[in-house]
Design a protein around this nucleic acid. Structure first.
Lengths: 160, 160
DNA sequence: AAAGATTGAGCCTTCAATCTTA
DNA sequence: TAAGATTGAAGGCTCAATCTTT
């Protein structure tokens, strides 16, 4: 437990990196009228033509309810299109519209340029190492998720 | 530009790590009735007794408006307290209440335990390396922030 | 009953506009 | 004018409840 401070430092650093990356993405994507979230959703919809709400919620690590409303907003802008599955009427299948595909391509250019500019501060060997560490950490965190389910709320909140 | 895919992988991995960490934090902190954001704010308020809204917005890398409302909610719960500065009536000085200090201490226990459990998947040498890389990346991203200001919106959105 | 999708409530966040004090 | 704080609008997110289809 002697290295707790060290772990907290790393932890805080990872949070900070996320905030900085997201902020940069937002600035870059503003030029094409998309948010980082919308960009990522469009990207997944292109990669999985006809993906369902549940499928998208799994790859984007969020709730179904969230996806439902993200898709609603994108559909309103005419960038994606929903249709019911023929076999199973419960499923909603999402796909890109022509306009959505165009917008996504515009966005990809500015987005990747922004990432390249910011991450190329790392030299090649650093990139390799970071890649390895990141993969390992994701595996560990995903495993932890399975071990620690919905948090039983075993402690009553102090006051009252 | 041959390593663009590699950079995108790292980038995506960092995003994923953030989401997984945040999700774990939320589960752990639910037991004491705080969100990750509230926990981080309380932590900063304790570290900087009497911090102003602007000061907090700077260390937490977000807008002043956001802090204003976070503080409002925490004050409503009786965890923080606001007072006007005597010299300069524009400043709002935030501090922990007794209740806030207690709650924060409860939270710190479960929070640090959760981090320790998840990050100790990394062995010591990996922790060292990751720490170095994270610091470097933060420096690079912060520098980029200064270079690339508010995004002039130079491109008109295609449609219309 | 179980699975997919949606919705209501509430918190978090940015951006732009406003109000107050210096 | 400038700086600090707040607020309105809109998007993003979780959680829990509900509605529909299997």
């Amino acid at each position: 437990m002697a290295n707790m401070d060290h772990l907290l430092n790393i932890y805080h650093g990872l949070q900070q990196i996320y905030v900085l990356l997201d902020d940069g993405d937002r600035r870059a994507l503003r030029a094409v009228g998309l948010t980082p979230t919308q960009y990522n959703l469009l990207l997944q919809v292109r990669a999985r033509e006809g993906a369902t709400i549940t499928e998208l919620s799994q790859v984007l690590l969020c709730t179904r309810g969230n996806i439902t409303r993200l898709v609603q907003r994108l559909a309103q802008q005419g960038l994606v299109h929903c249709r019911g599955d023929e076999r199973d009427q419960r499923l909603v299948r999402v796909s890109l519209t022509q306009q959505g595909a165009l917008r996504l391509e515009e966005a990809r250019t500015v987005y990747e340029a922004a990432i390249h500019r910011r991450l190329s501060a790392l030299d090649l060997p650093s990139q390799e190492i970071l890649h390895t560490l990141v993969e390992g950490l994701i595996a560990a965190l995903t495993a932890d998720l399975a071990i620690q389910p919905a948090a039983p709320v075993e402690a009553e909140i102090s006051e009252a």
